[in-house]
């Protein structure tokens, strides 16, 4: 089983967002970067599939800055075999450009599965995986929370509003992982040692400007001060009136 896992280096979710002086991007000073948590599910799934198959290779692919090598090493420490960094100073806002670079890299390499996290926790773009599938004309199931593979076919479950879809697909395929798919392993000490010596190829990424242009990055509006409606059960009627007439949520 040969599996590619496309990952992204993202700011830690606890990052305090400070806007850079260009007014369009995150001020990265003092920001800690991590492997996108949804990608951890994808890496874990790839490792389990390889272990289950008894043979194969797990290749980590990313588009990012030189610092993303560290993120690839994290995935290698979990157990992946090698890494490829498509290096760029700036990831375009248009996910299709990233998808094109990744598709060109994984195309014709004989992957049985190409895995992604369902989205990155920085830009919430939620699109690169299915775009790669479309560009390569591969079957794709997104946001899967359960997966079974056997006999060149797979069955996945994905959560939809008020239920779960059961989806069948043939291999090779592109899948994007949701929380619940598995419990990602922690890198073991031996894995961390071994990761230092695993191959990591760095090559320049070919990226266009794309069709999305950032105009501004701004802090969200502050909530307006609330008010105390009243005290005790007597305030319930007034609360309901306000929810109905002022807030219009009932």
């Amino acid at each position: 089983m040969k599996i590619a896992v496309c990952i992204k280096r993202v700011p830690d979710s606890e990052t305090r967002v400070k806007i850079a002086s260009d007014g369009k991007s995150l001020d990265e000073a003092g920001v800690k970067f991590i492997l996108n948590p949804y990608d951890e599910f994808a890496v874990e799934e790839a490792l389990r599939r390889k272990e289950q198959a008894g043979a194969g290779e797990v290749v980590i692919v990313t588009v990012g800055s030189a610092a993303a090598q560290e993120t690839i090493r994290t995935a290698l420490a979990m157990g992946a075999d090698r890494g490829i960094l498509l290096q760029t100073d700036k990831i375009p806002a248009d996910g299709l450009e990233v998808a094109r670079a990744l598709a060109a890299e994984v195309k014709d390499s004989g992957y049985d599965l190409i895995l992604f996290g369902k989205m990155a926790i920085d830009d919430y773009n939620h699109q690169v995986g299915p775009m790669v599938a479309e560009l390569l004309d591969l079957p794709c199931v997104t946001a899967i929370a359960h997966l079974e593979i056997g006999g060149g076919k797979g069955t996945a479950e994905r959560e939809i509003e008020g239920g779960v879809e059961l989806v069948e697909f043939p291999l090779p395929a592109v899948l994007t992982a949701d929380k619940g798919l598995n419990e990602p392993r922690y890198p073991a000490l031996k894995g961390i040692m071994a990761a230092k010596k695993k191959p990591l190829q760095v090559k320049p990424a070919t990226l266009g400007a794309g069709g999305l242009e950032v105009l501004a990055l701004t802090p969200p509006p502050q909530r307006k001060e609330g008010r105390v409606v009243g005290e005790g059960p007597a305030a319930v009627l007034e609360l309901l009136r306000l929810l109905r007439e002022e807030a219009k949520v009932l």
């Binding site: 700011p11 069709g211 999305l212 950032v214 105009l215 990055l217 701004t218 802090p219 969200p220």
Partner: peptide
């Protein structure tokens, strides 16, 4: 679009 877990809002223009 809200980004960074809703801690910032991104304004974009779609040129295509």
């Amino acid at each position: 679009r809200p980004v960074y877990a809703g801690k910032a809002l991104l304004k974009l223009t779609l040129t295509a």
